[in-house]
C-alpha cells in the first residue's frame, strides 16, 4: 500500500497546568489516505477537535505536542517552525470550523477574505484571485456569486456562510480538509446539504477529509473509515460499515446502541452509564473500564494496546481494523452476533 497522506503516530498532547500536566491526547495513531473521508467520533471532550488542532498546528497555548509525530505525505509537520507551518495551513491542509456565524470576520466582505487567502498561497493577481473566488463560490452553491461576493458575512444565512467557509478552506486546493463539526451549528434541513457539498467538492479535487463529528448518521453516510476516540485515546478504527455493524470496543457498541433508529423498534435507547473521566482522573488501565459493562479486574490495571483485529467474519475483508480492548475476543464475538 502506498504511503498515507496523513499519518499520526503515538501523538501525545499535553497542557501544563498548575495542578499538573493534563494529557488531552494520549497516544493517538491513525492514517488518512489520499482522497478518503475519515470520520472521527467520540463524545464531547473526548479529544476529537484536539486531533484536528494538533494536525493543523493550532493547539491553544500552553498546550503542546509532547511526543509522537505527525507526517503529511511522509514529511514531518509537528516540529515545523511557525512560518513553515503557516505555509502549510490553507495550502496543504484546509480547515472548516463548527460555527459559520463566528468563523467569518464581520468587518470584511467575502471577496476581501477569499482574495486575501488565495493571494497568500497562490501567485495570482487580485483580479485573477477574484475570478477564482467567484468560480469557487459558484461551485459551493452561492447563487449569483458574482454579485454576492461583495457582501458582508452578515448578509448571508448560516448555511450560506458555511458554504463560504468551505470555499475559504478549499480556495488554495489543499490535499486534506479537517472539518470540525461542520454542521453542528446548522439547521437540520441544511446539514445534509452541507455534508454532501463538502464530500462532493473534496472528491472532485481529490482532497481527503477528516470529518470530526458526534453524529454517527453523518459518519455512516459520508465516511470511508471511522475512528472512535475516548478520553484522548483511540478506542477503535476501521471501515465504517464494519465498525457500525460489528463494533469491537464496548464503547463503540454503546455509541451505536444509543443511536435512534427508524427501522427497529426499541423500547429504550441504550445509555452508556456515567460520564467520561476528567483528564486528571483517567485510570491507569483502560480509560473506559469504569463505565464498561464487561470490564474485568485486569481492565483497571492494564492499559490495552491498539490491536489488529483479524476477524474472519463471513469471509469479509477487514484489514485496517484496530481496537484497544483487553477483551477483544469476547467483544468481537458479541459484535459478530450483533451484526449477524
Amino acid at each position: 500500500m502506498s504511503e498515507p497522506l496523513l499519518s499520526l503516530r503515538d501523538v501525545v498532547v499535553e497542557f501544563p497546568t498548575r495542578r499538573g500536566v493534563l494529557r488531552a491526547l494520549d497516544g493517538i495513531s491513525l492514517d488518512v489516505n489520499a482522497g478518503e473521508v475519515l470520520g472521527l467520533v467520540g463524545e464531547s471532550g473526548a479529544g476529537k477537535s484536539m486531533i484536528g488542532s494538533a494536525i493543523i498546528g493550532l493547539i491553544a497555548p500552553p498546550g503542546r505536542i509532547a511526543s509522537g509525530e505527525i507526517r503529511l505525505s511522509g514529511q514531518r509537520i509537528d516540529n515545523l517552525g511557525p512560518s513553515q507551518m503557516r505555509a502549510l495551513r490553507g495550502k496543504r491542509i484546509g480547515m472548516v470550523f463548527q460555527d459559520p456565524l463566528t468563523s467569518l470576520n464581520p468587518l470584511y466582505t467575502i471577496a476581501d477574505q477569499l482574495v486575501e487567502t488565495i493571494r497568500t498561497h497562490l501567485p495570482v493577481t487580485a483580479a485573477e484571485a477574484r475570478a477564482q473566488a467567484i468560480a469557487l463560490l459558484d461551485r459551493v452553491g452561492i447563487p449569483a456569486a458574482a454579485q454576492r461576493i461583495d457582501d458582508y458575512p452578515h448578509h448571508f444565512s448560516g448555511g450560506m456562510r458555511q458554504r463560504v467557509v468551505i470555499a475559504l478552506a478549499l480556495c488554495a486546493q489543499p490535499d486534506l480538509v479537517i472539518a470540525d463539526e461542520p454542521t453542528t451549528a446548522l439547521d437540520v434541513s441544511v446539514q445534509a446539504q452541507i455534508i454532501d457539498l463538502l464530500k462532493d467538492i473534496c472528491a472532485e479535487r481529490g482532497a481527503a477529509v477528516v470529518l470530526i463529528t458526534h453524529d454517527m448518521g453523518v459518519i455512516a453516510q459520508t465516511a470511508d473509515r471511522v475512528a472512535v476516540v475516548y478520553a484522548g485515546r483511540m478506542a477503535e478504527i476501521g471501515p465504517v460499515s464494519d465498525v457500525i455493524h460489528r463494533p469491537a470496543h464496548p464503547y463503540t457498541r454503546g455509541l451505536m446502541g444509543s443511536i435512534p433508529s427508524l427501522r427497529e423498534e426499541r423500547a429504550r435507547l441504550v445509555q452508556i452509564p456515567g460520564a467520561m473521566p476528567r483528564l486528571d482522573a483517567i485510570s491507569a488501565g483502560c480509560a473506559f473500564h469504569p463505565r464498561c459493562d464487561v470490564a474485568t479486574a485486569a481492565c483497571a490495571t492494564t492499559r490495552p494496546a491498539m490491536t489488529h483485529l483479524v476477524s474472519a467474519q463471513k469471509g469479509e475483508q477487514s484489514a485496517d481494523r484496530f481496537a484497544a480492548c483487553l477483551l477483544l475476543d469476547h467483544t468481537a464475538r458479541e459484535g459478530g452476533e450483533h451484526g449477524g
Binding site: 493543523i56 495551513r89 495550502k91 467569518l104
Partner: peptide, 11 residues
C-alpha cells in the same frame, strides 16, 4: 473564531 479560522487559512 474568525481569528482562528484566519490562522487556519495560513494568513
Amino acid at each position: 473564531d474568525y481569528i482562528r479560522f484566519a490562522r487556519a487559512r495560513g494568513l
